[in-house]
Amino acid sequence: MSNWIQLDAQRLDQTTHENQNGVDIYFGLSPFDIPEAIRSHVDKSNDRLKIEFKYLDDPEEEKMEWSDKDSSLSVGKNSGCVYSISVNMKPLEEISGKSSLLKEFEDAVKGFIAEKHLTTVEESHYDVARKALAEKAEELLVIP
């Protein structure tokens, strides 16, 4: 299993800024919902690349799982934080690694939303996970 790769929270943060009557207002993800680190390893039982996200306070919340033939996603039931994504190794090898990894993630998220019928999904959680994946994809694809 590879080591945790530290993420830059300032780059992942998507704080929105507004000016209300001359006063600055900022709102964005809670620091607890921005991943701290990311790592990848191959799950040999199903030949999938598993990418895990680590959060600030190491929570123990119940998770919702979604999977299809090519990917699976694990999301926190209460927080909506993405905890892990597993993708089939073959598409990664066939197509260019980084773009394929992101596509698999997008597909997994879409599948998850469709299956769970979540209409008010906190998209920012997926955005931050996607951003982290995009940033560290090359390092994640170097499988030990």
Binding site: H17, D24, I25, Y26, F27, G28, L29, S30, D33
Partner: peptide, 9 residues
Amino acid sequence: RGEAYRVGG
């Protein structure tokens, strides 16, 4: 909101 919220920068 369940997130970080700042008033006054």
